[in-house]
Write a protein that binds this DNA or RNA. Sequence first.
DNA 1: GCGATTCGTAAAGATTCTGTTGCGATACGC
DNA 2: GCGTATCGCAACAGAATCTTTACGAATCGC
Lengths: 213, 213
Amino acid sequence: MLRASLSAQRYDVRTVNDPEEAVRVFEDWNPDLVITDLMMPGMSGVEICRAIRRQASIPILVLSVRDQEHTKVEALDAGADDYVTKPFSIQELLARVRAHLRRAPERVGDSAIQVGDFLVDPAAHSVAVAGRPVHLTPKEFDLLLLFARNAGKVLTHRVLLTAVWGAQSAQQPEYLRVFIGQLRKKLQGDAHKEYIQTEPWVGYRFLPEGAAA
Amino acid sequence: MLRASLSAQRYDVRTVNDPEEAVRVFEDWNPDLVITDLMMPGMSGVEICRAIRRQASIPILVLSVRDQEHTKVEALDAGADDYVTKPFSIQELLARVRAHLRRAPERVGDSAIQVGDFLVDPAAHSVAVAGRPVHLTPKEFDLLLLFARNAGKVLTHRVLLTAVWGAQSAQQPEYLRVFIGQLRKKLQGDAHKEYIQTEPWVGYRFLPEGAAA
DNA sequence: GCGATTCGTAAAGATTCTGTTGCGATACGC
DNA sequence: GCGTATCGCAACAGAATCTTTACGAATCGC
C-alpha cells in the first residue's frame, strides 16, 4: 500500500523484504531516501540506521508499531531522521517524505571530494594531501570531511562538536582543540602550509589550498 | 517545562510569547533551531514556518495538540521539518532535536553581502575592503555586518548596542565609541575614505562607497 | 561666551580562549 | 589474553579578545 502511494506520487520506489536484499539494492541503486520498519527479520531497524549512516547521509524514516519512548530515542540517535508510529496517515507520511527530500539538494553526496591539495573519500575512508596518503582516525576523518564539505567557511565550535561528537558534547571545546591539533600535525607534512585557520571566539576555517604558515 | 529540559541539556534557549517578539529575537539572535506551537496568538504556526523559511533554512519543529492529518500536512509543506503531537515525551523531543541538529552543518546558509567597496561574508566570517582582506574580531564583525545590512541608514546607539552586546548593554555607549574607532582604523587602509559617519546624538551611518575624509 | 554633554583615542587590566602535553580508560585486532 | 590504537579528559602557559578607564577635542543648549 505504501509502495503504491509513493509510486502514485511519481517517486521511483524499490521494496525489499530482508536486510541482505536491502544492502544489495542500497549499494546498487543509491536511493535518495530510505523508509524502513523497525522490525525486520534478521536485523533491527536500529542496526539498519547505523549501517546506512556509515555509508551515506540520506534521510532515514523509521516506521514502527512500537510507540515506546526509549525505542524512538534509540532509533533517532542511531541516525534515523524521523520516526512514525503505526497506524499512520498516508498523507502525513508523504508530507514527511516531502519535508525530508526538500533538504536533499543541500546534502552533499557521499562521493569523493577534491578541493585544493586534498582528496577526501568517504566511501574508502581515505585522505590524500597533495598526493601523499594520510592516515586518520574515525573522529579525525569526520572532522576533516566536514571541513572539506565546507571549505573556506568558518565552522563554529558548536557546529563541529555536534556534528562529530553529538549534541550533548556541544559544550566541550577541549575535544576540538585536541583534535584540531592532531589534524594539523598530520596534514602538514613537509610543506609549511597552514590548512586550518583559527577564528578566535568563533571556530575554525579550512583552506584546502593552504596558506603560508 | 520544555525550556527547562532543553537548558538542562546545555542548549542556549530563548522563549518568546508572541509572534512579534519571536521575529525580533529571531533576527537578533540567529537561532540554530526553532520550536513553535501551532497555536499562537496573532499568527498561526504555519505562517511562522513560512516567515522563517523566507529568511533562513534552520530546522523548524512544530508542536501541537491537533492530530489531524491535514493540519500536519499543511505545516510540513509550509516548511516545518517535524511535527510532534502533544502530549509528547520530553526524551523523544530531545532526540528529535538532536536528529535535526545533526544535520546543521550542512546548512550554513547566509550568503555574502556586496556593497560598495565591501564584501562581507557571514559564512566565512571574512571581510574585504576594495579587494583587501581585513581581519576583524567577532564583535567588530557583528558590528560591520549590521552596518552592511543597513548601508546608508543611520543606526542608533541603542540598536547597535542591543544587536551586538545584548539588550542589557544598551546603556553603555563606551563600547560603541571604542569599537567604532577600531573599525575605522582597520577599514581605512591607504585610501583616505571615511566609511563610518557619526550622526551626533543619534548614532552612526555606514557608507560602503566611502566619503572623502 | 560658558557649562554640560558627547565623541575619539589610547592604554591598561581582566577575562576568555587556544595549543599542547600527558595520562588513564576503552575498544579493537591478533 | 595481550598489545595497540583511539578516545575522553584535565592541566597549563601563552595568545587574542573584551572591558574599563582616562583625558582632550568637539558639539550643543543657553
